[in-house]
Nucleic acid binder design. Structure first.
Length: 275
DNA sequence: CTCCTATCCTGCGAGC
DNA sequence: TGCTCGCAGGATAGGA
C-alpha cells in the first residue's frame, strides 16, 4: 500500500493529531504474530516515555522517545488511527487491530494491519536498527542528484525500474511511483539501468522528485484502502498517467498502454512516449 | 557481487 | 447468487 508519499502523509497526520509530546501510558499487544513477531519488551519499556518526535526514513515511520526508537513499517496494509481525546471516535474495535498505544492524555493510536506484513520494533536510541542500516538515498534530499544516479547505475544490467525500486539504492519509490516517474521521464521500465545517458539520469532524478512531491501534496494515492491517521484518503490516483491503466490510451499520445511483470510486480508504460 | 523468484497474509473483484 | 482464482501499494531469504 504505502510508498513514500503515503508514509509521509501518515507522519504529517500523526503530527497534526498532536502525537509528539504525548507520554506513553500502556502498550497493548492484541496480536503479536506479524511477519516479524512483536516483542513484549515494548510493553515494558515504553510506559513513562515521552514521544519527542515522529520522523520518516524511507518507508519507515520512526517514533522517537527519550530513550528508545519505535520503528514502524506499514507493509502493504498497515494503518494508524486515533481514538479517545483528540482522536475522534471512542470504543470502536475493528478486525486486525493488532496494537494499541495508550497515552497518558487518553489519546490512543491503533495499529491495524490485515495482511500483517507491517513491522513494529523497539530499539535503544543509540543503536541503528538493521532495517535502516542499508538504506539508500532519500530521493527528496540534496544527495539525490543526477550525477549520483548516473554513476550508481553504471554497469547495472537490471532494468531501471528494478533499480529505482531497490531500497538499497533509492528509498521510497514503490510500484506505483516507479511506473509514474519513468513515464514522466520518457524512459522504458525495461531499459537496463546502465544504459541510461547522463541526460536521462537528469530527467529521471527530476521526475522521481516531482512525482513524489506532487503525490505528497495530493495526500498520497488511495487505490483501495490507504488512509492517513486522520482517516483521510489521498487523491493522486486520479492523476495516474500509466499505473493500472493497461490498454487505456496514453494521456499524452493516445497509444494503448502496455503492462508487464518486472521486479515481480505489474509495470505500466507507453511504448511510444517511453524509449 | 548481481539478479530473480518465492514467500509471508488477508481481502476483494473478475469471471464462471 | 455463490464459488474459485489471481492479484494487491513491500521486504527479504535463498538459489542460480
Amino acid at each position: 500500500m504505502p510508498e513514500l508519499p503515503e508514509v509521509e502523509n501518515v507522519k504529517l497526520s500523526l503530527e497534526r493529531l498532536g502525537v509528539p509530546g504525548q507520554v506513553f501510558e500502556r502498550v497493548e499487544l492484541r496480536r503479536a504474530d506479524l511477519r516479524t513477531p512483536l516483542k513484549k519488551e515494548m510493553t515494558r519499556r515504553l510506559p513513562g516515555q515521552r514521544l519527542r518526535a515522529i520522523r520518516r526514513r524511507a518507508k519507515y515511520i520512526l517514533f522517537e522517545t527519550e530513550d528508545f526508537l519505535l520503528l514502524n513499517h506499514l507493509g502493504m496494509t498497515g494503518s494508524w488511527r486515533a481514538a479517545g481525546p483528540g482522536g475522534g471516535a471512542g470504543e470502536d474495535r475493528r478486525p486486525h487491530d493488532h496494537v494499541v498505544l495508550h497515552f497518558a492524555s487518553g489519546l490512543r493510536l491503533i495499529f491495524n494491519d490485515p495482511r500483517r506484513f507491517g513491522l513494529l520494533e523497539l530499539s535503544a536510541k543509540d543503536r541503528v536498527p538493521s532495517q535502516l542500516a542499508r538504506l539508500g538515498l532519500e530521493p527528496l534530499s540534496a544527495e539525490f542528484t543526477a550525477t549520483r544516479l548516473f554513476e550508481d547505475t553504471r554497469r547495472v544490467k537490471a532494468p531501471i525500474k528494478n533499480f529505482i525500486m531497490d531500497q538499497r539504492r533509492v528509498v521510497g519509490v514503490g510500484n506505483i511511483y516507479a511506473s509514474e516517474a519513468l513515464f514522466a521521464a520518457g524512459i522504458r521500465p525495461t531499459r537496463p539501468a546502465g544504459r541510461l545517458t547522463h541526460k536521462e539520469a537528469e530527467g529521471l532524478t527530476e521526475t522521481i522528485q516531482s512525482v513524489l512531491r506532487d503525490a505528497i501534496a495530493a495526500g498520497g494515492s488511495t487505490i483501495r484502502d490507504y488512509r492517513n491517521s486522520e482517516g483521510e484518503a489521498g487523491s493522486f490516483q486520479k492523476r495516474f498517467a500509466v499505473y493500472d491503466r493497461e490498454g487505456q490510451p496514453c494521456r499524452r499520445c493516445g497509444t494503448s498502454l502496455k503492462a508487464r511483470i518486472l521486479a515481480g510486480r505489474n509495470t505500466f508504460w507507453c511504448a511510444k512516449c517511453q524509449r
